[in-house]
Amino acid sequence: MINLINILMQIIAYVFLITGIFFVLSTAVAMIRFPDLYTRLHAGSKCLMAGSISVLMGCLVLEGINLNSLKLIVIIIFLLVTNSVAIHVIASFANNHKIKSKTITKNDIED
């Protein structure tokens, strides 16, 4: 019975890891294929956070309840706070230098 639960935890952990690595790989494809700065900011914020939090959740399931799992929870909360702030700072930096987006819709034209 304990062996069955152990195998089930391994399967859940590897499902988390493979899902996260799919998101990380799609971030790398998005950095190459997207045409503009602001779309790249969107990829670097949301898609990368989905991937990294999923990988860290897989490691957390693999670890169990321990002192090291507390460090992993600290890393997850830290990345959730930090990466959002970093992407916002970069977007503000790009807005101060008047970098315009290539795909302008009708509502964005103000002059």
Binding site: G20, V24, T27, A28, M31, L37, R40, L41, G44, L48, G51, S52, V55, L56, C59, L62, E63, L72, I75, L79, N83, A86, I87, I90, A91, F93, A94, H97, I99
Partner: peptide, 25 residues
């Protein structure tokens, strides 16, 4: 432009952080 490079640098940093956590296991 410069912000493109900074976004890519941030992404590479987070990816190597994941590599370090996986090497720990």
């Amino acid at each position: 432009s410069i912000p493109d490079r900074i976004v890519a640098m941030n992404s590479i940093g987070v990816m190597f952080l994941l590599v370090l956590v996986l090497f720990s296991y």
